[in-house]
Write a protein that binds this DNA or RNA. Sequence first.
DNA 1: ATTTGGTTTAACCATTTGGTCAAATTTAAA
DNA 2: TTTAAATTTGACCAAATGGTTAAACCAAAT
Lengths: 209, 209
Amino acid sequence: MENHKNNTQLQGNEKLIMEAAKKIFGRKGLDGARMQEIADEAGINKALVHYYFRSKDKLFEAVINVTFLSFFPKVMSLMSNPSISLFQKIERFVDLYITLIQENPHIPGFMAQELSRGGADRVLDMFKDSGIKPEVFFQQIEQEIKTGTIVPVNPVHLIVNMISMCIFPFLARPLISGFLIRDRIDYDEFLEERKKELPKFIINSIKKK
Amino acid sequence: MENHKNNTQLQGNEKLIMEAAKKIFGRKGLDGARMQEIADEAGINKALVHYYFRSKDKLFEAVINVTFLSFFPKVMSLMSNPSISLFQKIERFVDLYITLIQENPHIPGFMAQELSRGGADRVLDMFKDSGIKPEVFFQQIEQEIKTGTIVPVNPVHLIVNMISMCIFPFLARPLISGFLIRDRIDYDEFLEERKKELPKFIINSIKKK
DNA sequence: ATTTGGTTTAACCATTTGGTCAAATTTAAA
DNA sequence: TTTAAATTTGACCAAATGGTTAAACCAAAT
């Protein structure tokens, strides 16, 4: 049965290849990854990889898609839910974001990869295609500013700050580890701590007292 | 005259190659970059690149070195200067960091590159070799906490937050641009704004009121 | 049992690419 | 002016790599 167009619900070898590709691409990037390496990681013949995904680029694109599609919708649906208060939203955002990346460690690598390459447009399109509008979050901020709950802040800077502080620690993981050794804290511990500290840090900064 | 060991003060073709390599490596990464491409960018014969730098890896390493050496010393000497107050230090840190990256746009790419690869140890070594100790900054924070000027914060999280918010916007530049279009703000404007907003954001969060 | 269609593999191919080398050219010392 | 050393180049090479293909394999239908 032909099922090349079948997305989302992969199985068997196709699934194996995707998982292997996530791992290898995430580690070495599009150029650094070898088709043979991916095949080995999946435990199958190299030609099979081509059989299922045609080319390296197509495979990469496929991984990009499932990666971002498993990510943005969850985060963005949270952010554009108008019935969650701003502070709650910040708390949940940090937790969700960090947890999602913990569960899919290949994501930051791809993020950097795809962005340093010219792939921002594609990501931007995904935003729009998902039918989700960040405006809700922005308006919510402006609302709270008017109400006087928070101090005036540029919403764009705020959201950039939040994303930065969630993602970057994963990119800089080996570096940060170097610092942490001093305190004999391991990285997962650091991340769990971060899930609690970060919302406090953010809210503390914008909350009017 | 043999001058392969001559560092820091390059000239002529050697300089041209380094600049070209910064640009190409920063854009495409170690694997994505082509020696031919670098030679073309420098406007010289490919064999010359090998003549001066032996191999692609050696060239990459050379660029890594000058990149990080042009960066860490300045930042770290600021951070470990005990005669600058904490708040001033934060303000200067943000400004210096962002300005430095603005002037060397290839740095974030390299940062991500080198970290996603296993190069953290090398970077960590540079810290130590530079004879600069981040402990000064950490102690300063703990001091201010005792004094009661700032609320209790984990110094590691704080410094990670600061670095994250400075670097990540450059990595995510194309994405952020997408958001900014809405407000018809161009990126440099955004960065200048950021130099002012970020210190406020950070200090606001830790300052006891 | 045979056929049929998807699946899997080993062998193979064309191209790209990092790197080399001998010859040519420039520079500077003698 | 010679001469020696450093620099620059085009041509070339071996290895690596993405991709192809024809044959083998296998499960289900007839």
